[in-house]
Amino acid sequence: MAIQYWRIRDRYYRLIGSRCGACGSEFFPPVYRCKKCGSEDIADREMPRTGKILTHTLLHEPLPGFEALAPFYLAVVKLDNGAKVLTQIVDSPPDAVKSGAKVRAVVRRAKVDGDSGQIFYGYKFVVE
């Protein structure tokens, strides 16, 4: 694991993204500058935990460290506040994973580090 997980674990657990103080737009992943109005008045904001699938894919050949899960669903989820999240879809019947389906965030084991065996947790989504 090349990145320092502890630095952003709250973002992974609680879906902490950004809110623009000027226009109220919300984003995930967090931003440095509002994509709508350009304001740099940006604060942390917990995202809503529900949304809809915008597009999805069933990945057969994942990155190293994710082989045990394969094949697994990935989706772009548009949250109720308009923010878009790239996420795994888990614990859902295959015919339920489709564009427009309503989904909800859960916390799951995200990754096991190959070298240290350390377990990382993070958001995934399930179809409601």
Binding site: T57, L59, P62, L63, G65, L74, L86
Partner: peptide, 13 residues
């Protein structure tokens, strides 16, 4: 990378 997405996955989406 954290969610296991490859380049092919992004393009699959």
């Amino acid at each position: 990378q954290f969610v296991g997405a490859t380049f092919a996955a992004l393009n699959g989406l």
